[in-house]
Design a protein around this nucleic acid. Structure first.
Lengths: 356, 356
DNA sequence: CTGAAAGCGCTTACAG
DNA sequence: CTGAAAGCGCTTACAG
């Protein structure tokens, strides 16, 4: 008997059972484990399902099976920022390809009513990948009490928090050393902002690790990030093109222009270059600019950007693979994964002949 | 009584009810509707929850409430391709900001075991945004039988399928006309592939609409996309930088090089330019290249790309806003949304003095 | 203000 | 091969 004129509701397993004359068990098996019922039952049930337009409710199925078949990516900043940064996008791409491989979806999780913590509390995922997570952040507690496996990219390496990183301190050391070897003695360092974190609390954040690297190189040249002699200045910029441009502007109005700008992010470096070029400065003849990340744009811009290549896609890939191992209850070989970087020396960094 | 040495399991609402001495109803209210219980009950329940590490299970809650609090974005190609195209990424960004606004997550849905249809069957979302959907595709049927609201970007405008588009035919007409006005009479058009769709079945696909626009402009100059006089040639390229480079290569080995390459995607155009420059061709002196989309890279590359600016982010935004109206059971003003485009004339397109 | 109970749509151990 | 029934962890109409 055709059950017509139920206007909107979707049929459930119960409807198919009733209509086909079989049990709910049989209907379930028809979809998920056909071997367990007769061919006759199966085809009859499937035909009935087809006729009534029945597709098993994924939510009910997942709920019953206690899994989501999705992993989450927690946006480090508001979505409008994060998703503009090609570096983050590459990380997401790496995660995504692993999701595809395992038949999972990738849930992008923005803050919920401005609260990242609330977002994590209610995230419908089997595991989480975060960026820049520090031990001691309250999100970490939420994930732990939810017993939600997670791995963090560019966060603090710590025993009870799997992480994927490059050796930021070393990378920063090397690129600063390169800058100094080229003769630059008057530089501006553009750090990433540390969001809302209290600066003293998290000693191992990425900006801090990189600053230590810069400092180590500077020391070798008798300079320091913390001397107030005006030769090394520190600025902070959000990780967007617009903020990069603004930083470029700030630098042009300095009493003494530096000979080199060292940024912690290509997108900021590119913003600087665009601003400088628009305002009549020649890069690198008048001023050099150095980036971090090696996003694809850094090869397209002219001059091409000297930067640190960090394999963003691989970071996502590694993090996701580790997360899936955790989800499947496997042991992680090492909880702290490190990945190699490469210094890319290109045209945006010039040599200063006569150092002051 | 502290319930210790239950080793791993997360506490449920039942545990909190038992431990606190209140009912499950009260516990539920404590979290979701505090006004309905006494302050005393609420604080006691919350304290108990805190003590036992209870966070309500989002899946169970959503299941009970018959909603997911997530909308899906169906990847048009395998994740590795889609997520490399800045155009798609911008669309996702637009969708994402609307999700953030409404407190939803954004689920990126790759094919499930190579099947997009299966992915849609099992997607745990309240609505779906797709790209390039054509009426008659079987995915459309799945969404309909699941009664899953959806809107498509760059798909066929059709009554029972809300869509967001630019007027592709007109945009293509205008840019081709510009090329012809500049004196080009020997061109290669690089179309997007139509994926696995049967070409005759879907008359209104984006590549087809654009081809009609090209054809209309060509006709005005006594030329045609379909004449075999060798003056207008058609190629197809996947939407990736690599395929763009390969297309550049193919063009250099043509018996007669065109004076202009007209692509349907900036990423392909940029691939062409990179290949051509690497192999000693000057753009636009030796050959002009024209794009489509106006991704941010098209301003960074040199020469800057002449292209059609289509506001990808706005497309995502509009599509998502429409989808949320559908999810909330509101009526859509118009089911077919059109959004303006702009021709961006930049350096990659040169003027030919003496037309043959 | 409070709680017992039904219900959301599946899965599956168990018995026949 | 088949099905009745319990269970997944919440919400909420209803009665007190």
């Amino acid at each position: 008997m055709e059950s017509s004129n139920l206007p909107q509701k979707r049929p459930t397993i119960k409807d198919i059972a009733r209509e086909s004359g079989y049990s709910k068990t049989a209907v379930s098996f028809a979809f998920n484990d056909p071997k367990r019922i007769s061919e006759k039952a199966r085809s009859h049930i499937l035909a009935t399902a087809e006729r009534l337009g029945y597709i098993p409710d994924p939510m009910a199925r997942n709920f019953s099976l206690r899994r989501h078949l999705s992993i989450g990516f927690l946006l480090p900043q508001i979505i409008h920022y994060s998703m503009r940064n090609p570096y983050t996008l590459q990380v997401i791409q790496g995660i995504g390809s692993v999701c595809q491989k395992y038949g999972y979806t990738l849930t992008i999780i923005p803050p919920l009513n401005d609260s990242i913590t609330d977002a994590v509390r209610s995230a419908a995922v089997d595991g989480l990948i975060t960026m820049g997570m520090q031990v001691g952040m309250d999100i970490v507690d939420v994930m732990k009490t939810r017993k939600l496996p997670f791995v963090t990219i560019d966060g603090t390496p710590s025993e009870d928090m799997p992480s994927v990183n490059i050796t930021d301190e070393l990378a920063a050391y090397q690129i600063m050393k390169l800058v100094l070897q080229k003769g630059h003695r008057n530089v501006v360092i553009v750090s990433l902002s540390e969001d809302a974190f209290d600066s003293d609390e998290f000693e191992a954040s990425v900006p801090k690790r990189r600053k230590r690297g810069y400092e180590r190189a500077l020391k070798e040249y008798g300079m320091s990030l913390y001397d107030l002699d005006g030769k090394v200045n520190l600025m902070v910029s959000e990780c967007t093109l617009e903020d990069g441009k603004h930083t470029g502007h700030l630098i042009t109005i300095l009493k003494e222009m530096p000979t080199c700008i060292i940024t912690m992010s290509d997108i900021v470096a590119i913003g600087c270059i665009l601003y400088l070029k628009e305002h009549g400065y020649r890069v690198p003849e008048d001023i050099s600019v150095v980036g971090f990340d090696n996003i694809s744009e850094s090869e397209l811009i002219s001059p091409q950007l000297t930067t640190v290549d960090q394999p963003a896609c691989d970071k996502g890939y590694l993090a996701a693979e580790a997360l899936f191992r955790m989800i499947n209850g496997e042991e992680l070989g090492s909880t702290h994964m490190e990945i190699p970087f490469t210094i890319m020396e290109r045209a945006s960094l010039s040599t200063i002949k006569d150092t002051q």
